[in-house]
Computed example of a mutant assay.
Amino acid sequence: METAFLVSDMTCNHCVQTITKAVQAVAPDAQVSTDLNARRVVIASTVAADVLRAAIVDEGYDVQAA
């Protein structure tokens, strides 16, 4: 299952790394792809979207469904 989010305050590669680590902490097998210019994160995982979203929010990011 693929889930996409818009993360408006994802502005640099450090943000990308932080978000990727947060997602993989709750979904170790997740495939995370990011588009920094579009501020879009796409996650391929069997973990529920709300769990993935919460992991990113817990890192301090504003997350919206894409």
Rank of each mutant, 00 (worst) to 15 (best):
M1D: 12
M1N: 13
E2R: 13
E2D: 08
T3F: 08
A4G: 15
A4M: 13
A4P: 10
F5E: 05
F5L: 10
V7R: 10
V7T: 07
V7N: 02
S8D: 14
S8L: 12
S8M: 08
S8R: 08
D9H: 10
D9V: 05
D9T: 04
M10L: 08
T11Q: 11
C12T: 15
C12W: 08
N13V: 12
N13I: 15
N13W: 09
H14C: 01
C15D: 02
C15I: 01
V16F: 10
V16K: 12
V16Q: 06
V16D: 05
T18R: 00
T18E: 01
I19V: 08
I19R: 00
I19S: 00
K21N: 15
K21V: 14
A22K: 02
V23H: 01
V23S: 00
V23I: 03
V23N: 00
V23L: 00
Q24V: 03
Q24L: 06
Q24D: 14
Q24I: 02
A25C: 05
V26P: 01
V26R: 04
V26S: 07
V26H: 09
A27W: 02
A27D: 12
P28S: 12
P28N: 06
P28R: 03
P28M: 09
D29N: 11
D29C: 05
D29L: 10
A30V: 07
Q31S: 09
V32P: 04
S33V: 15
S33T: 15
S33W: 05
S33K: 13
D35K: 03
D35C: 03
L36V: 00
N37V: 10
N37H: 04
A38I: 03
A38T: 04
A38Q: 11
A38Y: 09
R39V: 15
R40D: 06
R40Q: 10
V41S: 14
V41G: 10
V42G: 07
V42R: 15
V42L: 07
V42N: 03
I43C: 06
I43R: 01
I43P: 04
I43G: 04
A44H: 13
A44M: 05
S45R: 03
S45I: 06
V47L: 07
V47G: 00
V47P: 04
A48D: 13
A49K: 11
A49T: 10
D50A: 03
D50M: 09
D50C: 03
V51K: 02
V51Y: 06
V51F: 06
V51L: 07
V51E: 09
V51W: 07
R53I: 05
A54S: 15
A54V: 12
A54T: 15
A55L: 08
A55N: 07
A55I: 02
A55V: 04
A55R: 00
A55E: 11
I56N: 01
I56Y: 03
I56W: 05
V57A: 09
V57D: 13
V57G: 03
V57F: 12
V57N: 09
D58T: 07
E59W: 05
E59N: 00
G60P: 05
G60L: 12
D62H: 11
D62C: 08
D62I: 11
V63K: 00
Q64T: 15
Q64S: 14
Q64A: 14
A65S: 11
A66L: 15
A66T: 11
